[in-house]
């Protein structure tokens, strides 16, 4: 008896999930809505009595933008529920028939964050080389000899061109201290 009663429930659960997956764009509406609330809340908590100059203060435009976000979030939800779909962007290297490869995206995000953390202590040449090497690895390159060499070469070359030729300072880190 229990199996009989759970089965329809499970089926309806999976249909809800399928319904939601089909309309995952509703998540965009939720985000737009949340962003709108955030902007409005920030505007409401502003202390403007002293700062006000002219007929329009610093709160007016945030009010308009926040309200606009709420409105667009609602309108987009209506559009999605009516069957409207945002078209995923195509491209020369993009294959939309395959499901999204989240592992690669997560790896790239991790590598990028690591580089952001390491650029301070290790300097640009090392952090940049790690960024390139890690990204190439995440994207499927498996030349264990060639990849790090290219990464190091590119990073050092960029460092010298920017720092010496173009006058854009980048942190050298301990490596440049040694050389």
């Amino acid at each position: 008896m229990t199996t009989e009663s759970t089965e329809p429930a499970g089926a309806s659960g999976s249909t809800t999930r399928a319904w939601l997956r089909e309309r995952s764009e509703l998540g965009v509406c939720v985000l737009l809505f949340a962003l709108g609330v955030l902007v409005l809340a920030d505007a409401l908590t502003m202390d403007v009595d002293i700062a006000q100059r002219g007929p329009i203060g610093p709160r007016t435009v945030p009010f308009v933008v926040g309200a606009g976000l709420l409105l667009v979030g609602a309108l987009l939800a209506v559009d999605v529920l009516r069957g409207g779909r945002g078209e995923a962007e195509g491209g020369e290297h993009v294959d939309l028939d395959e499901p999204a490869d989240w592992r690669t995206v997560l790896l790239l995000t991790g590598v990028f964050l690591a580089a952001a953390v390491l650029i301070g202590p290790l300097g640009f040449p090392i952090a940049g080389a790690l960024l390139f090497w890690g990204s190439a690895y995440a994207l499927g390159s498996r030349h264990h000899g060639r990849d790090p060499l290219i990464a190091a070469g590119l990073s050092l070359f960029t460092y010298f061109v920017f720092d010496n030729l173009l006058g854009v300072p980048l942190p050298g880190g301990p490596l440049m201290g040694v050389l």
Partner: peptide
Amino acid sequence: IGEALWVAAHLR
């Protein structure tokens, strides 16, 4: 960045 991540997710 947006483009690179998007392509990475769907690399042909």
